[in-house]
Design a binder for these strands. Sequence first.
DNA 1: CTGTTAGCGCCTTCAC
DNA 2: GTGAAGGCGCTAACAG
Lengths: 335, 335
Amino acid sequence: MKKVATIKEIAKALNISISTVSKALNDHPSIGTMTKDRVKAKAKELHYIPNQAARSFQQKKTNQIGLIVPSLRDQFYVECISGIEAEAIKHNYKVLLCQSHEDPQREVDLVNMMLLQRVDALIITTTKSTTNYDHIQELEQMGIPVLFFVRVPNDFPCHYIRNNAFDASQKATEYLIKKGHKNLAHIKGPVNLRTSRERAEGFQSALASHNIKINPSYIVTTDLSQNGNENAIKKLLSLAKKPTAVIAFNDLVALDAIEYIKKKDKTLLSQIEFSGFGNNRLLRYMDYPLTASVEEHPYNMGVEAIDILLQLIKADNEPSEYLQIVHSCELHTYR
Amino acid sequence: MKKVATIKEIAKALNISISTVSKALNDHPSIGTMTKDRVKAKAKELHYIPNQAARSFQQKKTNQIGLIVPSLRDQFYVECISGIEAEAIKHNYKVLLCQSHEDPQREVDLVNMMLLQRVDALIITTTKSTTNYDHIQELEQMGIPVLFFVRVPNDFPCHYIRNNAFDASQKATEYLIKKGHKNLAHIKGPVNLRTSRERAEGFQSALASHNIKINPSYIVTTDLSQNGNENAIKKLLSLAKKPTAVIAFNDLVALDAIEYIKKKDKTLLSQIEFSGFGNNRLLRYMDYPLTASVEEHPYNMGVEAIDILLQLIKADNEPSEYLQIVHSCELHTYR
DNA sequence: CTGTTAGCGCCTTCAC
DNA sequence: GTGAAGGCGCTAACAG
């Protein structure tokens, strides 16, 4: 078992002081080229590997970014993480990844853990039922920048990056309207999510601007479970006048709905068009694909998230302003 | 901006020594109950939050586990990560996640980074073209246990967890044979991967044990890109005697193949059955689903990976034996 | 240019 | 029971 050398040992081997070695290794300008070379040579010889843990400790900077997402089951977050990780590494930051599993208590624990770890910043997508943000705001008070990702609190100002759910939803709805639909329904997401509200509003706004009366029974809700999704479409199918187009909260909701219809009455399949959110990569393998899906560019959002945090980390002092980015989406149409 | 208290400040506030505070907070037996209570109360009052970075540094133990996977685009690894993260957190370990993007040089960099970070252990799925393992073996020499995950090197003994690709492939092939197929083809994965070989061998073994002659032109290869997948099926379709069943290297390969067939000649769809690996959750939404897919239980593999590593971390000394786990898979049939 | 000193926050002997 | 001292590996004044 090899042991790692420390700068101390390099110093001893070279008969110079520890600080000289330190400076030499860090290319400090005040060190002679020759000394630097000697030190570096010896460092290589002794298999010196700087101890990042020690460095983090003494510099009060870990170069780690905490990341808390609800779940890796959601392709969307996975894409985000992919972007986050790639961009973080590029800037010499490492990502500490955790899942809250939509459990607010677990979220609290994880956030506290991030505090223990002294991550330099935190990216968090809160639980769909998070209502108390104390634990998160505490981080900010301790000077750890927090970026709310996708799901952002309504009650107080904060740094965030989210996408323009309203606009996207409007686009999707409009696309279906232009395809001739008059009876459009919306399967809405969990009420706690701001995104749910925005997508619903975008939906309604599109109808309004085309002078289509909004039928309240055309708006149903799901908790995003398979069961919830099925119940939602069930309600819509039970209506005397069935909708001919459905804007679903996301792709999976739409797929579950379609699946349900397939089981119940295949003939209905051709009579209802679906639009989703997420533009899942596997959609293109589907045979009764959604008519359209909103592409949210999750990878890019991840990259941007890191870029924002790097700014905040650098700024360091109390932020004069909150960085708030609203990402625009585009509709990807399949037919 | 709140400042975090240190044990020093607690000590000062209480007029006792730092070491007493430290011991009190750690419930050291030699400290009086009353003192402990006073210390803990004051700690809470001052918003004391132990500095994990300092602790890691001084205990030479970070409680972090490095994780390097090729890509988050692959649903399989995502599921693994999910299990790894969940189990790690449960045992108070954190996961440092990185993607190699199948780039061996990047892999080297990441492994070295893990070394800098002094992670307590590393889980790695090597690049599909990794041939040199020096950087990884160096970790082991430094006392950092390494667990090869899914992709394991052939040349030397190591700790690993992988699944029984041979057996799984055999099962899948047999299932199709029992459904009456005589002309079975295999779309093989990249040659560098041991898994490719094993799946191919399982395929051949099944044929052999059913006295079906192996037709060499029925075995084609893909590099797993969409293009590669399409070329593979193209080759099979160009044969005078087309296969009626195809064991694909994984679900995505099968899906690309099916997609290709759809585009070329829909009538062929009903004449060729496909089996895949991975049992992607979205398969159930497909209308021309695979006939079967091998479920590899990635989440559980992730959990097990952590359990193994915890053993290795605890064992600490030179391992007397290599822990090698071969996970068995089961065939999930769709029709 | 190089060395000395001090300290980051915490834990662990070892005295008392 | 409690405290004093030392050190983990590294960096950053400051002094020479």
